[in-house]
Every structure is written in structure tokens, then in C-alpha cells.
């Protein structure tokens, strides 16, 4: 009897297969990677002419959008992706099947989260690449450590919040509604879809309270030509991290492996022959 594989090795196996599954699900790949790209091209064609000042000084709108949508892609790949995927896996009985194997639950979750993070990284690299090539975005090497740290804190926090959302939604059918209802309205007041110049005070306060705007603006600051290197926005990152910790606590406390009684999907029933 050989010893069981190490948790690190098992996490790598999980990550490899989760990525495989992600790429073989065209809808997921479209919404997380292609959609931000389409939005970038579209927003720039529509509003990309001028410049904008969202607090750090004037910079071209097209560069603003590059940073905004790169950050948003990272959030889609983690928060939205996990909040949608995990309840489906749960209702189809796939989580329950995994629970019956010797794979430690933490390794399974780590594999899922790592998948989201890798997809987020791809999204950010692609969008920033397009920004550099097509929209004169200049990446300042001195601010790249801050960009990287902001990315890491952001994806970790939003992945944790995605797992928390997955843990509390009753079933897979309500998951997309909850995930979108939580993230899309925020995107409008968080410097993602529209630059906010002098928003009303209360809107500013709401945006600052929820984690999306602190993350997006912290990330944008690392790309902004007028910020001083190293451009770490520690305050906002700390706030995002706090949300992440809250998300992690909720997911650990509320995570379920069993399909919800009312949420069993047609696919699950399909496995027993129709009567």
C-alpha cells in the first residue's frame, strides 16, 4: 500500500482538471474572458475619446477602461465564476461524490479557487496586453509589484466571497441571479463601466463600503501615469482583505456538500432512468 499523494500534488491534479473543465465550458469562458474584452473595445469605441479624472489626475479614458475591465475580469473569474459553478456542482451531486473520496475537502476547494485565480490572471494579462498594444497604456515597472499584490489580494478576497455566495444560495437556479445582482449594480458605482467624476457623496460612500470599488481603484492606481511609485493603496487593500476574511468565514461555516432538497437539477434525475 503506497501512501496517499501529498496535498500539494493533489491540488495540482485538481487545478489541472478544473481548468480543463473551464475551457470545455464555452459559456463560462465567454462570460469571464471574452465579455470584458468586448466591453473594452465597445466602451472605447463609444466613449474612449477624452480624458477623465477619477481622483489621481487626468488620464485617457481608454486607459482608464483597460485597468477597470482588467480588474473586473479578475472579479468575474473568481467571484462570479465560483458563485455560479459551485452550486451547480452541489445540486448535481458532484460535490457529494467528491466528499466520499479521500480527497481532503480543503484540497478540493483549493483546486477550485486556484482555477479561478489562473483564469483571472489570464484575463488581466490579455486585457493589459491589449491596453498596451492598442490604447497606449504604459506599464511602469516600479508599480508592477503593487499591481501584482493588488491582484493577489483581490482575487483571494473575491474568490472567498464567491465561495461564501455559493454556500448561502439555496440552489443552482438562484445562483446566477444572486451573483449578478450583487456584482453588476456595484460595477456601475465602482469605476468599472463608467468613470465616476464627482459622484454624489452617498454614492461615493456606498462604493467605498463594498469591496469592488476599493479593489478596482487600487488596481487602476498602479497603471495611472500620475501616481507615484510604488503605488500601493494599503488602506483600500486592507478593506478588500477584510471582506475576503468575512467571505472565508461564511464559506467555511455554511459550506454544504449535499444537494439542496428543492434544488436537484434535471441532470441529477437523469441518472436514474425515466419512469
Amino acid at each position: 500500500m503506497s501512501p496517499r499523494a501529498s496535498n500539494v500534488a493533489l491540488t495540482v491534479v485538481q487545478l489541472r482538471y478544473q481548468l480543463k473543465i473551464f475551457w470545455r465550458t464555452p459559456v463560462a469562458a465567454f462570460f469571464t474572458l471574452v465579455l470584458p474584452l468586448v466591453m473594452l473595445v465597445l466602451f472605447n469605441a463609444l466613449f474612449g475619446g477624452g480624458s477623465v479624472d477619477t481622483g489621481q489626475g487626468e488620464w485617457p479614458v481608454r486607459q482608464f477602461y483597460t485597468g477597470a475591465l482588467a480588474a473586473f475580469a479578475a472579479v468575474s473569474a473568481t467571484y462570479t465564476n465560483l458563485a455560479n459553478t459551485v452550486p451547480i456542482l452541489r445540486d448535481e451531486g458532484i460535490l457529494k461524490r467528491w466528499r466520499g473520496t479521500p480527497l481532503p475537502p480543503s484540497v478540493y476547494v483549493a483546486g477550485m479557487v486556484a482555477m479561478g485565480v489562473v483564469v483571472a490572471l489570464i484575463g488581466v494579462v490579455v486585457l493589459l496586453g491589449i491596453g498596451v498594444v492598442a490604447y497606449d497604456l504604459e506599464l511602469d515597472a516600479a508599480k508592477m509589484p503593487a499591481a501584482f499584490v493588488t491582484f493577489v489580494v483581490g482575487v483571494a478576497a473575491f474568490a472567498a466571497m464567491g465561495m461564501a455566495c455559493a454556500a448561502v444560495v439555496p440552489n443552482a437556479r438562484s445562483a446566477p441571479a444572486v451573483a449578478n445582482a450583487t456584482i453588476l449594480p456595484l460595477a456601475f458605482i465602482s469605476n468599472v463601466f463608467t468613470p465616476l467624476e464627482d459622484p454624489p457623496g452617498w454614492l461615493d460612500a456606498v462604493g467605498d463600503f463594498f469591496p469592488l470599488k476599493p479593489f478596482v481603484t487600487a488596481f487602476q492606481d498602479t497603471l495611472h501615469p500620475l501616481t507615484d511609485a510604488p503605488a500601493f493603496a494599503w488602506g483600500r487593500l486592507g478593506w478588500v482583505a477584510l471582506w475576503g476574511v468575512a467571505g472565508a468565514i461564511v464559506s467555511v461555516k455554511k459550506f454544504r456538500w449535499e444537494p439542496s432538497a428543492e434544488g436537484a437539477s434535471p441532470r441529477r434525475r437523469r441518472r436514474t432512468p425515466a419512469s
Partner: peptide
């Protein structure tokens, strides 16, 4: 189990590979 899903996107062999990975024997 009486009823439970499998990741549809995997091939049959891949499913056995990934689900089998954590067993010692």
C-alpha cells in the same frame, strides 16, 4: 450513490483519473 453527477466535460478516462488520484491503493 443512488444518484449523483459526474463532471460532464471530462472524458470517462479523465474522470477515473481525477477521482482516483487521492486513493493510496
Amino acid at each position: 450513490l443512488q444518484s449523483s453527477g459526474i463532471e460532464d466535460e471530462l472524458s470517462v478516462l479523465e474522470a477515473l483519473d481525477v477521482y482516483g488520484a487521492s486513493y493510496s491503493t
